Amino acid sequence: VEPFVCAQCRTDFTPHWKQEKNGKILCEQCMTSNQKKALKA
């Protein structure tokens, strides 16, 4: 199985991968920080 790479921070290690609607693969940490930024905006 090919390891995923986060589209935002380029890490290849995370407990959980998330896929955005646009198809980008993000690590759990980037997904969480993006959600917090969206709530602040």
Score class of each variant (00 low, 15 high):
residue 1 V to N: 05
residue 1 V to C: 08
residue 1 V to A: 03
residue 1 V to F: 05
residue 2 E to P: 03
residue 2 E to W: 01
residue 2 E to Q: 03
residue 2 E to C: 07
residue 2 E to N: 15
residue 2 E to K: 02
residue 2 E to T: 11
residue 2 E to D: 15
residue 2 E to Y: 06
residue 2 E to L: 01
residue 3 P to G: 13
residue 3 P to Q: 14
residue 3 P to K: 06
residue 3 P to I: 14
residue 3 P to R: 12
residue 3 P to A: 14
residue 3 P to V: 08
residue 4 F to P: 04
residue 4 F to Q: 09
residue 4 F to I: 12
residue 4 F to E: 06
residue 4 F to H: 12
residue 4 F to T: 06
residue 4 F to S: 05
residue 4 F to A: 12
residue 4 F to Y: 06
residue 4 F to N: 14
residue 5 V to R: 09
residue 5 V to C: 02
residue 5 V to H: 13
residue 5 V to G: 03
residue 5 V to A: 12
residue 5 V to S: 12
residue 5 V to E: 04
residue 5 V to T: 10
residue 6 C to A: 00
residue 6 C to R: 00
residue 6 C to H: 01
residue 6 C to S: 00
residue 6 C to N: 02
residue 6 C to T: 14
residue 6 C to I: 00
residue 6 C to M: 00
residue 6 C to E: 00
residue 6 C to D: 00
residue 7 A to Q: 13
residue 7 A to C: 14
residue 7 A to W: 04
residue 7 A to T: 13
residue 7 A to D: 13
residue 7 A to K: 11
residue 7 A to V: 14
residue 7 A to H: 15
residue 7 A to N: 12
residue 7 A to M: 05
residue 8 Q to Y: 14
residue 8 Q to S: 15
residue 8 Q to M: 15
residue 8 Q to H: 15
residue 8 Q to G: 15
residue 8 Q to P: 02
residue 8 Q to C: 15
residue 8 Q to R: 15
residue 8 Q to W: 15
residue 9 C to H: 14
residue 9 C to Q: 07
residue 9 C to M: 00
residue 9 C to L: 00
residue 9 C to E: 04
residue 9 C to K: 06
residue 9 C to N: 00
residue 9 C to T: 04
residue 9 C to V: 01
residue 10 R to F: 15
residue 10 R to E: 13
residue 10 R to Q: 15
residue 10 R to G: 15
residue 10 R to T: 15
residue 10 R to V: 15
residue 10 R to I: 15
residue 10 R to C: 15
residue 10 R to P: 14
residue 10 R to L: 15
residue 10 R to N: 09
residue 11 T to R: 12
residue 11 T to V: 15
residue 11 T to C: 13
residue 11 T to F: 03
residue 11 T to D: 11
residue 11 T to E: 14
residue 11 T to P: 09
residue 11 T to K: 14
residue 11 T to Q: 14
residue 11 T to G: 14
residue 11 T to Y: 01
residue 11 T to M: 14
residue 12 D to E: 10
residue 12 D to G: 09
residue 12 D to C: 12
residue 12 D to N: 13
residue 12 D to W: 05
residue 12 D to M: 04
residue 12 D to Y: 09
residue 12 D to H: 11
residue 12 D to K: 03
residue 12 D to Q: 04
residue 12 D to S: 12
residue 13 F to E: 09
residue 13 F to C: 11
residue 13 F to L: 05
residue 13 F to I: 15
residue 13 F to M: 13
residue 13 F to D: 04
residue 13 F to S: 05
residue 13 F to R: 06
residue 13 F to P: 11
residue 14 T to H: 08
residue 14 T to W: 01
residue 14 T to K: 09
residue 14 T to V: 12
residue 14 T to S: 08
residue 14 T to G: 02
residue 14 T to D: 02
residue 14 T to Q: 07
residue 14 T to P: 12
residue 14 T to Y: 13
residue 14 T to C: 06
residue 15 P to Q: 06
residue 15 P to N: 01
residue 15 P to T: 11
residue 15 P to A: 09
residue 15 P to I: 05
residue 15 P to M: 07
residue 15 P to H: 00
residue 15 P to L: 09
residue 16 H to A: 07
residue 16 H to N: 02
residue 16 H to L: 03
residue 16 H to S: 07
residue 16 H to K: 03
residue 16 H to W: 10
residue 16 H to P: 04
residue 16 H to E: 08
residue 16 H to G: 09
residue 17 W to P: 06
residue 17 W to T: 15
residue 17 W to E: 13
residue 17 W to M: 13
residue 17 W to R: 11
residue 17 W to Y: 15
residue 17 W to L: 11
residue 17 W to S: 12
residue 17 W to I: 10
residue 18 K to T: 05
residue 18 K to I: 03
residue 18 K to D: 07
residue 18 K to E: 12
residue 18 K to S: 10
residue 18 K to C: 10
residue 18 K to A: 06
residue 18 K to R: 08
residue 18 K to Y: 01
residue 19 Q to H: 06
residue 19 Q to E: 13
residue 19 Q to C: 12
residue 19 Q to L: 08
residue 19 Q to T: 02
residue 19 Q to F: 05
residue 19 Q to M: 10
residue 19 Q to S: 08
residue 20 E to R: 02
residue 20 E to M: 11
residue 20 E to A: 01
residue 20 E to T: 02
residue 20 E to L: 03
residue 20 E to I: 14
residue 20 E to Q: 03
residue 20 E to F: 00
residue 21 K to L: 07
residue 21 K to R: 12
residue 21 K to W: 10
residue 21 K to V: 09
residue 21 K to C: 10
residue 21 K to A: 10
residue 21 K to P: 13
residue 21 K to I: 02
residue 22 N to S: 14
residue 22 N to Y: 13
residue 22 N to Q: 12
residue 22 N to M: 11
residue 22 N to K: 11
residue 22 N to L: 04
residue 22 N to W: 12
residue 22 N to T: 11
residue 22 N to P: 10
residue 22 N to R: 13
residue 23 G to K: 13
residue 23 G to M: 14
residue 23 G to L: 12
residue 23 G to S: 07
residue 23 G to C: 06
residue 23 G to T: 10
residue 23 G to A: 12
residue 23 G to H: 14
residue 23 G to R: 10
residue 24 K to E: 13
residue 24 K to L: 07
residue 24 K to C: 04
residue 24 K to Y: 01
residue 24 K to V: 06
residue 24 K to M: 07
residue 25 I to T: 08
residue 25 I to G: 03
residue 25 I to D: 15
residue 25 I to Q: 09
residue 25 I to H: 14
residue 25 I to Y: 03
residue 25 I to W: 03
residue 25 I to L: 05
residue 26 L to A: 01
residue 26 L to Q: 07
residue 26 L to I: 09
residue 26 L to E: 04
residue 26 L to F: 10
residue 26 L to S: 07
residue 26 L to N: 01
residue 26 L to P: 06
residue 26 L to W: 07
residue 26 L to M: 14
residue 27 C to S: 00
residue 27 C to P: 00
residue 27 C to N: 00
residue 27 C to A: 00
residue 27 C to H: 10
residue 27 C to L: 00
residue 27 C to T: 00
residue 28 E to M: 05
residue 28 E to P: 05
residue 28 E to Q: 04
residue 28 E to G: 08
residue 28 E to L: 05
residue 28 E to C: 11
residue 28 E to F: 02
residue 28 E to I: 01
residue 28 E to R: 02
residue 28 E to T: 10
residue 28 E to V: 07
residue 29 Q to S: 05
residue 29 Q to R: 10
residue 29 Q to G: 05
residue 29 Q to I: 05
residue 29 Q to C: 01
residue 29 Q to D: 07
residue 29 Q to K: 11
residue 29 Q to V: 02
residue 30 C to D: 02
residue 30 C to L: 00
residue 30 C to A: 01
residue 30 C to V: 01
residue 30 C to E: 00
residue 30 C to M: 00
residue 30 C to P: 00
residue 31 M to W: 08
residue 31 M to C: 01
residue 31 M to D: 07
residue 31 M to R: 05
residue 31 M to H: 14
residue 31 M to Y: 13
residue 32 T to E: 05
residue 32 T to G: 06
residue 32 T to K: 10
residue 32 T to R: 06
residue 32 T to W: 01
residue 32 T to D: 03
residue 32 T to H: 00
residue 32 T to L: 02
residue 33 S to Y: 13
residue 33 S to C: 07
residue 33 S to H: 12
residue 33 S to L: 05
residue 33 S to F: 00
residue 33 S to Q: 09
residue 33 S to T: 09
residue 33 S to E: 09
residue 33 S to A: 08
residue 34 N to Y: 03
residue 34 N to T: 04
residue 34 N to V: 04
residue 34 N to P: 03
residue 34 N to L: 02
residue 34 N to S: 03
residue 35 Q to E: 10
residue 35 Q to D: 07
residue 35 Q to K: 06
residue 35 Q to R: 04
residue 35 Q to T: 10
residue 35 Q to I: 02
residue 35 Q to L: 02
residue 35 Q to P: 04
residue 35 Q to A: 06
residue 35 Q to G: 05
residue 36 K to R: 05
residue 36 K to F: 02
residue 36 K to Y: 00
residue 36 K to E: 07
residue 36 K to C: 03
residue 36 K to M: 07
residue 36 K to V: 03
residue 37 K to M: 11
residue 37 K to E: 12
residue 37 K to A: 10
residue 37 K to F: 10
residue 37 K to G: 09
residue 37 K to C: 03
residue 37 K to N: 04
residue 37 K to W: 02
residue 37 K to P: 12
residue 37 K to I: 07
residue 38 A to D: 10
residue 38 A to K: 11
residue 38 A to H: 02
residue 38 A to L: 08
residue 38 A to Y: 04
residue 38 A to P: 01
residue 38 A to W: 02
residue 39 L to N: 15
residue 39 L to P: 11
residue 39 L to M: 09
residue 39 L to W: 04
residue 39 L to V: 11
residue 39 L to R: 09
residue 39 L to E: 07
residue 39 L to D: 01
residue 39 L to C: 07
residue 39 L to Y: 15
residue 39 L to S: 11
residue 39 L to H: 07
residue 39 L to A: 07
residue 39 L to F: 01
residue 40 K to T: 11
residue 40 K to Q: 04
residue 40 K to P: 13
residue 40 K to R: 14
residue 40 K to D: 13
residue 40 K to A: 09
residue 40 K to S: 08
residue 41 A to V: 12
residue 41 A to G: 10
residue 41 A to W: 10
residue 41 A to C: 04
residue 41 A to T: 06
residue 41 A to L: 13
